[in-house]
């Protein structure tokens, strides 16, 4: 199992009352799986993704990522896990505005102290078709280009698992198609497990398995009818 989630619950204290946004969610993923979490706004999708990726702590339940139990780790240990095993893609790209495209892709490698980070990053940028744009700042790139940089960054540290939060949410249909195709291609090439949060059912259908949330509860967990050519 690359990701094992058991009875995961998240509760927030709000205005003196407790608000449970995730109720005892459980599922498991094998290495190389592609997986989508779908549901309406406020159903707990992003919360679940954040917990799975070790960005937040659960109120109850447990998460095992690549055999490591995240719940007992402190923030620094979880950061190390993320750096070693996890890649991220966000709806709003989340590139560092003060770094160039190339520098953004280098960051995960630099943080690990890897040698030849610039070379690897340049290769990845070329892979996503932005070899010539490495010295541009994010603000000088279009939305689609920014998301491609973010894809290159996500794969830079050769993650075992990639978390993508609404990766096409801010893109037009054509650009979306390019980014999605690139995402699945890179995923297949690297043999990475993909966890996708989206409310785009068409996109979800491209994964092998779909988990449907409503009100923080799993209402459906099914294999996709058609596993497309990706």
């Amino acid at each position: 199992m690359i990701l094992q989630v058991d009875n995961l619950t998240k509760t927030y204290a709000s205005g003196g009352r407790e608000l449970t946004v995730l109720h005892a969610v459980s599922f498991g993923l094998q290495a190389g799986d592609t997986f989508a979490i779908v549901g309406p706004s406020g159903s707990g999708k992003t919360t679940l993704l954040g917990l799975c990726a070790g960005l937040d702590r659960a109120s109850a339940g447990s998460v095992h990522l690549n055999g490591i139990q995240l719940d007992n780790l402190n923030e620094d240990q979880r950061a190390a896990v993320r750096n070693q095993h996890v890649g991220f893609i966000f709806q709003n790209f989340q590139l560092l505005p003060t770094l160039t495209a190339l520098e953004n892709v280098q960051v995960p490698l630099e943080l690990r102290g890897e040698k030849g980070a610039a070379k690897t990053a340049q290769a990845l940028l070329e892979r996503v078709g932005l070899g010539q744009r490495g010295h541009h700042y994010p603000a000088q790139l279009s939305g689609g280009e920014q998301q491609r940089v973010s894809l290159a960054r996500a794969f830079a540290n050769r993650p075992a698992i990639l978390f993508a939060d609404e990766p096409t949410g801010n893109l037009d249909p054509d650009t979306s198609a390019t980014v999605v195709s690139l995402l699945f291609e890179l995923n297949r090439e690297a043999g990475t497990t993909l966890v996708l949060v989206t409310h785009d059912l068409e996109l979800a259908a491209k994964t092998q398995r779909v988990l449907k949330l409503r009100g923080g509860k799993v209402v459906e967990d099914y294999r996709s009818a058609v596993v497309e050519k990706y």
Partner: peptide, 16 residues
């Protein structure tokens, strides 16, 4: 803050 949090997300340690 945004920058530091992103770095944290990407796995930067407290020390870094």
């Amino acid at each position: 803050i945004q920058e530091s949090v992103l770095l944290r997300t990407l796995g930067a340690s407290r020390r870094q």
